[in-house]
Design a protein around this nucleic acid. Structure first.
Lengths: 214, 214
DNA sequence: TAAATGTCTTATGTCGACATTATAGCATGA
DNA sequence: TCATGCTATAATGTCGACATAAGACATTTA
């Protein structure tokens, strides 16, 4: 077993992400190093590194000599980010769909089944979040371009599911969420690359617009 | 006039980029904070921040407790990065080509003309580098998705033109370089989005393969 | 001889402190 | 009343120092 040595910085970054997700830190709020340092009883150095990490992730904005704030997303930011995510994911799936085995298809079916199950019992989308991750990861299971996968995630998932966590939870009814993904899966089963691309682009656009408009 | 207050960190990042470009730091070389700090006569703090910035840019790799190294690109890294850049740029142009005015076309013609001029006199591609930037920026002049533009750059330009600077200079003969771009421009003048997309994908693929294979 | 152990050196991660810069509140003057 | 400038406060950017961990080398052991 490979045990990972976690540095303070990365732990702090995780803590701040959590604080943003559950609303302790809200969009536009200033993030002050001394405060966090006192709260966690550590020095400012690891805090600074964590904030820099979050800045490059797009969760935090930084202005030299003026400090850092939780990123304030404009509607355009949201739409643009989802468009980029959609472009990359759609291209990645379309390019690799030819390599899918029957097993690969089966894995996707399993995710969709789990989504439908969750759709029947859940009251909001919180249970759907990891299923959604699994769904999109499964779509890219045959995509060998790791960089594409990373950048697709970075572009929209990271931002939206942290900064807009609460909005995200109310995007769709749970059954509606499951059905939207099932529809995309159908196009995959049919190995219709063009249709998958179009549906993914539409899917992300719909989510982007719904998140932007609240 | 808006004067920028540059912090040490960003200046250091720029210096290190330069050191990588001109070969003072080579792929795989360890980058040691104390050395740089002594060389620049400053403390380690700004150096660390600069290295973190470069890490997120993809120029440097970091392993906790073991230090940082200039990123060692595999052939696959290069190909993948160029693919992502191509996907984004191609989509960005294709989506915005409908909005191009005659002025926009004229701007592209000007770049191509300058490239041809440079192609006649230059002995290597060093003079082409900024023309290349201008060309691709012009292709995206009507793309309103800023994030797409940023990520396209981040994905391949930053990496290849710093880490593989010297290889890049010998990719093509200067006239050949100009003509390749002129050919893409022709498809733009014709407003043939599909063809522009295909040509850009091919263009980036060709560059990726050439850089990877040396 | 090769493997294992111990020692020494260097670099990293973290700390506390300082100077500089931005911000808010108040005072001053038109 | 509003604009301007000053003051006080607090946060940032940078510094030098230290403990710990990694890597190199020498030493022991089998």
């Amino acid at each position: 077993m490979l045990l990972k040595k976690e540095t303070y910085s990365s732990q702090v970054a995780q803590i701040i992400r959590q604080m943003i997700r559950d609303g302790q830190l809200r969009q536009g709020d200033p993030v002050k190093e001394p405060q966090l340092a006192a709260r966690l009883s550590i020095s400012r150095a690891p805090i600074r590194e964590a904030l820099q990490e979050l800045t490059y992730e797009g969760l935090v904005t930084s202005e030299p000599q003026k400090g850092k704030r939780v990123r304030l997303l404009t509607d355009k930011d949201i739409l643009d980010s989802y468009d980029v995510g959609a472009i990359l994911e759609a291209a990645g799936v379309a390019d690799s769909l030819g390599d899918w085995s029957e097993d690969d298809m089966q894995r996707l079916r399993a995710v969709v089944d789990d989504m439908r199950d969750a759709g029947r019992t859940a009251t909001d989308l919180s249970a759907m979040m990891q299923l959604d991750d699994r769904f999109h990861a499964t779509l890219l299971q045959r995509c060998e371009n790791v960089r594409l996968t990373e950048m697709a995630r970075l572009s929209c998932v990271t931002i939206s599911k942290v900064l807009c966590y609460k909005k995200w939870l109310t995007l769709f009814s749970p059954p509606g969420f499951a059905e939207r993904h099932a529809a995309i899966a159908e196009a995959v089963y049919a190995r219709d690359a063009a249709k998958v691309e179009a549906m993914l682009r539409h899917h992300y656009r719909e989510i982007g617009e719904r998140i932007a408009s609240r």
